[in-house]
Computed example of a mutant assay.
Amino acid sequence: MTKNGFLIIENKDKINRIKIDTISHIICEDYLLTIVKTDNSHLYCCKSLSSFEVELTKNDFFRVSRNTLVNLRYVVTFYKKPKPIIQMTNKKEISVSRRRVNDFVKKYKLL
C-alpha cells in the first residue's frame, strides 16, 4: 500500500514504512519479494509482485520481466545487444524480457 510517497510493508511481526524514492528495484523469487533500496539495503516481504506493480507504476516503476520491477529513475544505461540489460545506479545489471523491451524504451525515453 502506498501513502504520501511511502510504501507500507506489513509482515507478521512488523510494519515498515519505506520512502518510494529510495527503492531501486524489487525482485520476486519463490514468492519472496526482495526490495532493494538505493543504499543496497534489502527488505523482504511475502506478497506478489503484481500487487506492488499496480501501485508503483504511477511512481516511474516498470516491470522489466516476470520477476523484476525497477525504478526508472535509477536506471543509468540500457544495453540493447547482445541481450537487453539495464544497469542501475548501484551497478546491478538486470535483464529485460524481450517482450517488454519496446514498452521499456518508450517509457524510459519519456522520463
Rank of each mutant, 00 (worst) to 15 (best):
F62A: 02
V105A: 09
V75C: 06
K91M: 08
L49R: 02
E93M: 14
I20L: 00
N40W: 15
V105C: 05
K37T: 12
L56H: 02
R99V: 15
L110Q: 13
E93R: 13
N102C: 11
E10G: 01
F6E: 13
T68Q: 09
S65Y: 01
S50P: 02
Y74T: 13
T68G: 10
I85A: 12
N71V: 03
R98G: 08
I27P: 06
S97R: 05
T68P: 02
K92S: 09
Y79W: 10
D13A: 09
I23E: 10
T77V: 13
V70W: 03
Y108E: 10
L111A: 05
Y44E: 09
P82Q: 07
R17S: 15
E93G: 09
K12E: 10
S24M: 05
L111Y: 05
T77Y: 11
V96C: 05
C28N: 15
K12H: 11
I27H: 06
E93P: 09
L111M: 05
K107Q: 12
E29S: 10
F61N: 02
R63W: 02
C45S: 12
Y74H: 09
V76W: 08
R73L: 10
V54K: 08
D39Q: 03
K14W: 09
D30G: 10
I8K: 09
F52D: 02
K19L: 11
V36K: 01
V36L: 03
N67P: 02
V70M: 07
N40M: 10
I35R: 00
V76M: 07
D21T: 13
